[in-house]
Design a protein around this nucleic acid. Sequence first.
DNA 1: AAGTTACGTCAGCCATGTTGACATATTTGG
DNA 2: CCAAATATGTCAACATGGCTGACGTAACTT
Lengths: 156, 156
Amino acid sequence: MVELLFFAYRDFTAEPDAILGQIGFGRAHHRVLHFVNRNPGLRVADLLDVLKITKQSLARVLRQLVSEAYVQQTAGASDRRERRLYVTEKGRELAVRLLDLQTRRLAAALKAAGADAERITQTFLLAVIAETDRAEVKRLVSGRRSTVANSDGDGR
Amino acid sequence: MVELLFFAYRDFTAEPDAILGQIGFGRAHHRVLHFVNRNPGLRVADLLDVLKITKQSLARVLRQLVSEAYVQQTAGASDRRERRLYVTEKGRELAVRLLDLQTRRLAAALKAAGADAERITQTFLLAVIAETDRAEVKRLVSGRRSTVANSDGDGR
DNA sequence: AAGTTACGTCAGCCATGTTGACATATTTGG
DNA sequence: CCAAATATGTCAACATGGCTGACGTAACTT
């Protein structure tokens, strides 16, 4: 089981990695693009929370994503220190393309695993996640939510 | 689902990573130690196959594992060019300790996901793995097998 | 004896993580 | 209103673990 998870994760990321490589990006760019795409108006601090990396690491990839026009920043409406992040059309296209590959793979695997596979696998994966993060993840995943999703709210 | 897999994998590796960090090792060492522990007598070439990294990358971590006496090498019985790899007692202890953390986490998650969760999750994960690798993975996981497991056979 | 195989190694590059220190703009609280 | 806290950016330096290319040696095979 331990090994299965290792191999599964490796192959789960392989196709996107290959595409990203062609345009000079890596997995780190993918993660940022993905979460910004899924949660428009995300702030830098939110992203740091989600990815659990340092702002210096994030800055490096974010700078590239912005300078190559995959991601766009605008100052927060109610707090102008914030940089709310949004994907551009170009960014959305890439995000969707990569997400599609992964979604298809997972969908096929769920199909192979039978009728209740989706519910069961979801429960399983959520239970693998550290307890302290589960609430946050639930919000992030199912909600497209509050703290972050509404571009004009004050968040926090 | 895509996100769940990301977070699950991150947390799945977090505890081992923390322990490894304390002794100056990283995830790469873990992977090598793990597969050698599970498949005693593994050859370097087998490991390259499984991990899909270059021999230079492998050499770096393997050298450390050997020099710090976690892994031991002996020339192959029927082909003395081969280096058959085995964990030492020290290596086994570390491998077991790390494996235990991960196994417990997965076991708890399976329990949370219900009765058939194990079978279903296994099927799911296997289906996520690239078709071309599935046979290899199956051998590796369930077998503790032929090509590799018997320390005196000629393999291949 | 020649070629192939299994493995090791040197050298250097790249991506992505880290820490620590400091700058700047903006908001907030006393 | 000013001082402190906050959100973000940035410079510098470093570690890990991938990569390529080139070359060496021992052992097996033909």
